[in-house]
Amino acid sequence: MLSIEEVRRIAALARLELSPEEERLYAGQLSAILDYVRQLEELDVSGVEPMTHALAAGEAPALRADEVREGLGAERALAAAPARQGTAFLVPRIIE
């Protein structure tokens, strides 16, 4: 069973603000799913290469030539910005 503390830690990593009800709900649901996926432990996977990429074996896609291509430009880049100043996206104060 996933603890509430664990759920909070994950939510913080994922930048999700959860209500207390959501914390309880996800603790239960994630625990059930994790119990289910535990069946993978039955399998002996030693020596098995992970299939991290689904591309056909031996295919080598062409890399891009180093040439400048026209982008969107600042105005189109900012067209959907929730807040801006000049041509910069504006966000609450960043503290380093």
Binding site: V37, L40, L43, V45, V48, E49, P50, M51, T52
Partner: peptide
């Protein structure tokens, strides 16, 4: 335990 193992199981399925 999770992601990597799952990707290996994926190989077995293939």
């Amino acid at each position: 335990a999770y992601y990597l193992r799952a990707q290996k199981v994926r190989t077995l399925i293939r």
